[in-house]
Design a protein around this nucleic acid. Structure first.
Length: 307
DNA sequence: CATTCGTGGGG
DNA sequence: TCCCCAAGAAT
């Protein structure tokens, strides 16, 4: 670490111009928090970590059943680490973005090898695990270990954008200003900070939603900068939409679905049947192999990876 | 910093 | 029907 690596001190707002948000949001959370399995006391850090992987871009309702199956089958990181990675991909089912299954398996292996089988409680060590980025590291450290971290997910970003900044939506990519704001709003006490992280996230998930927000149920509606400004519509570049039909992603999904259902190696012909355009089909299959999601065998056979 | 990476439900 | 979006990470 050299002097040039030390970031300039972030300007700290002299006084919060947005008033006190913690009290109302924490009280609301007390009353309205969902009883989700990964929030139960017995979930443990591994349960929290599994849930965070699955919830990366997948709604709670679809995660719930798969989460229960995973924790029943692999109650500890070492249990998953002992399995073939392909089993993780198979058990991932249709949650989407199956590379997450591979990374979760990789994280379990790393935890078994480097951390004695226990999910690390250190943010930097969490961040070093495959599939763990800034959000997930902060979430596990906060939710599982009660530490003080800014947990900045899409829900929290939207809540802050509206209630504090006064705009309908946060920027497309997370900005330094958002991180600075999240840190400034973080309660000083670790246990309160952890509850604040969960509460602000829950508010975004249940009330301050992307569409059809329910300000009538919001505990901070009277202080919300966006609402007080008359809820001006989002201006600026359109929020990046994700096309899907006809993309490689769709082809990869169809190919992998065949392999997930198969108990034995699948012949090339069975994969060829899912997409008629041969160039794109080949590119998609190559991509799956390159990602380690598919293992090619001799004789034009394919299967989920054994190692 | 922009792209890529699945899947399904709701408005 | 079509479009939007859902507790992001890696490159």
């Amino acid at each position: 670490m050299t002097a040039t690596d030390i970031p300039a001190p972030a300007p700290v707002p002299a006084a919060p111009a947005h008033g006190e948000l913690h009290g109302p949001v924490l009280a609301w959370f007390e009353q309205h928090a969902r009883d989700l399995p990964w929030r139960r006391p017995d979930a443990g850090a591994w349960g929290v970590m599994v849930s965070e992987f699955m919830l990366q871009q997948t709604p709670v309702s679809r995660v719930l059943p798969v989460y229960e199956q995973w924790l029943a089958r692999w109650p500890r990181p070492a249990d998953l680490a002992a399995e073939a990675p392909g089993e993780a991909v198979r058990a991932w089912g249709r949650l989407g973005y199956p590379r997450r299954a591979l990374r979760l398996h990789g994280a379990a292996v790393a935890i078994a090898e480097r951390h004695g089988g226990d999910v690390p409680d250190d943010h930097a060590q969490l961040l070093a695990l495959p599939g763990v980025g800034e959000y997930t590291a902060a979430a596990v450290a906060s939710f599982a270990y009660g530490q003080r971290h800014a947990v900045l997910d899409t829900n929290v970003r939207r809540v802050f954008a509206r209630s504090v900044t006064g705009v309908q939506y946060p920027p497309n990519a997370t900005t330094a200003a958002e991180r600075r704001l999240a840190r400034a709003l973080l309660p000083g006490d670790a246990s309160t900070a952890a509850r604040w992280a969960a509460a602000s996230m829950e508010l975004g998930a249940l009330v301050c939603t992307a569409r059809n927000e329910e300000c009538g149920r919001c505990p901070i509606a009277s202080r919300c900068a966006w609402r007080l400004a008359g809820k001006p519509a989002h201006d600026g570049p359109p929020r990046r939409g994700q096309t899907y039909a006809g993309t490689d992603r769709q082809v990869r999904g169809k190919l992998l679905a065949v392999l997930r259902e198969a108990v034995a190696p699948v012949p090339q012909a069975a994969l060829d049947a899912v997409w008629d355009e041969p160039v794109q089909r080949a590119r998609a299959l190559d991509g799956l192999v390159a990602d380690g999601l598919v293992e090619p065998l001799d004789g034009g056979l394919y299967r989920l990876p054994l190692a």
